[in-house]
Design a protein around this nucleic acid. Structure first.
Length: 472
DNA sequence: TTACTAACGTAATCATGCC
DNA sequence: GGCATGATTACGTTAGTAA
């Protein structure tokens, strides 16, 4: 039924596969046990603490639920109960997309109904809307604006990859609301080549391109920079979604570094945009986020997670609940908060703690080095700077809370639901490893990541704008 | 080569904001 | 209240990784 239409020929169309570290998986599973249907707040919170993107957490839960259901475990066991993912764990606040943003999206949609990750991110930059929202927008759009030629029940993607993947030249029925027309300013988005699809972006951003990226703020690289800077000719290869050392020699796309989505996996709610004063920009009603989940895209280094100053980390709670002493274990790993450099020793990771709590013998310092999540971060020069402790790094991290802010002072907040849940359900026996995770997966003992291999370091360098590139 | 699983697609449905 | 549309879920498929 729902065949994934993934054009094989669009190499970079997919987001770079994220490789979760055992410790991250454990944390996810631990939470999954407690609540397979976490709300936005929990997801974001967890995402921050694990150093991955919230959308990834969401996907992980989706896949996990699926796996579980497949494994005979009747979902009835966890039929989402209200209050489960936390008090009123609501869903994400509806994102408000302005007419001009819609225009951009519609325009892109008419060119390519199935934009790859690069194209989506580019759109995200252009519109200021988080990439995951862009993705959802396209999903909804495809569903509601079937590409005439209903060859099949709604399977608009019938014409898969082969022929222009839906490069709909067919002006799908413009939506009534959005200014149909999309002024002719059409950026020649090349459907099949997302990366280059953004040619002179500048040209494509006639609308007051309200874009100001505050990528995870941490990166700072792009903060306050108007779209224009992206005009830099991106080298396709460099666009590797998650910024991992691009295989091909190309240098890293300079702007790639600026890409919030691209580079900031751990962005707190990726919504980091906010056209100052620009009503145009998408003004997602960030969840009031009780705990700062709110992706609130602070335009400024605003402690984006308004709430919890590094203290109440979800993991902390878990740990606390599980009675794990607040270790100050130096495992920066999870630290990856927004900008916190992953490998910054000194920061205790709740992951470690959580794992310890859950009885998962994961490596003590699972994240001592760059790894899974960090890899993504590596692509963030800004984060590097932050990690390096450069004073200049505006990242929220510095002042804000490097998630992993070790032993947090007393949490003003009352014990979270999680605490209770955890207390009630000893996660100790992580029955979860079962699903698909072979014991080995837990990487128990193995995963002792090294601080930064030369290769990784090199990769990092490669990611830096101006860098000669990997091959170089 | 194979198993596992992240990413992504559709369809259906719920939820929210605006008229 | 109705409509448009963003968000979420289930389910199926594709493809990257690690064993």
């Amino acid at each position: 039924m729902a065949r994934a239409r993934v054009s094989p020929e669009k190499p970079g169309s997919r987001r770079r596969r994220l490789v979760l570290k055992p410790s991250q998986k454990d944390a996810l599973q631990a939470l999954f046990q407690q609540n397979p249907y976490p709300g936005i707040a929990t997801r974001e919170r967890l995402a921050r603490e694990l150093g991955i993107d919230e959308s990834r957490v969401q996907v992980w839960f989706q896949n996990q639920r699926r796996r579980r259901s497949k494994q005979s475990r009747p979902p009835s066991e966890h039929v989402r109960q209200e209050g489960e993912g936390g008090p009123t764990e609501a869903r994400r606040k509806r994102t408000v997309i302005s007419p001009s943003q819609t225009r951009i999206l519609v325009q892109a949609f008419t060119r390519d109904r199935f934009p790859g990750i690069a194209a989506r991110e580019e759109l995200a930059r252009q519109t200021g809307i988080p990439e995951p929202r862009i993705q959802i927008w396209f999903q909804n759009r495809r569903a509601r604006h079937p590409q005439r030629s209903p060859s099949g029940p709604g399977n608009g993607r019938a014409q898969g990859p082969g022929g222009a993947p839906a490069t709909t030249t067919t002006p799908a029925p413009e939506d009534r609301r959005a200014p149909p027309a999309v002024q002719s300013t059409s950026p020649p988005l090349r459907p099949s080549q997302p990366q280059e699809s953004m040619p002179p972006l500048a040209a494509a951003a006639p609308f007051g391109a309200p874009t100001f990226w505050v990528p995870g703020a941490a990166s700072g690289v792009c903060v306050g920079q108007p779209l224009m800077i992206f005009v830099v000719q991106p080298s396709p290869a460099a666009l590797q979604p998650s910024g991992r050392p691009p295989p091909p020699p190309q240098g890293a796309a300079p702007w790639a570094a600026c890409s919030p989505a691209v580079t900031a996996p751990g962005l707190p709610g990726q919504g980091a945009i906010l056209p100052p004063g620009q009503p145009e920009t998408h003004i997602p009603r960030w969840p009031e986020s009780p705990s700062g989940e709110g992706t609130a895209p602070p335009l400024e280094p605003q402690p984006q997670a308004p709430s919890l100053p590094s203290s109440t980390s979800l993991l902390d709670e878990l740990l606390a609940a599980t009675g794990v002493p607040d270790t100050q274990a130096p495992s920066p790993g999870a630290a990856a908060d927004e900008g916190v450099g992953p490998a910054l020793p000194g920061a205790p990771s709740f992951l470690d703690e959580l794992l310890a709590a859950t009885g998962t013998p994961d490596t003590p310092g699972p994240s001592l080095g760059p790894s899974a999540d960090e890899r993504a971060h590596l692509a963030l020069p800004g984060e590097l700077l932050a990690a390096a402790g450069l004073p200049g790094s505006p990242g929220p991290s510095p002042g804000s809370s490097p998630v992993v802010a070790g032993p947090h002072p007393a949490l003003p907040g009352p014990p979270s639901l999680l605490e209770e849940i955890l207390a009630a359900t000893a996660i100790q026996d992580t029955p979860w490893s079962s699903p698909g995770s072979p014991a080995g997966e837990e990487g128990v003992e193995a995963t002792l990541e090294t601080p930064l291999s030369e290769d990784e370091y090199q990769a990092l360098l490669d990611m830096l704008p101006g860098s000669p590139g990997p091959g170089a």
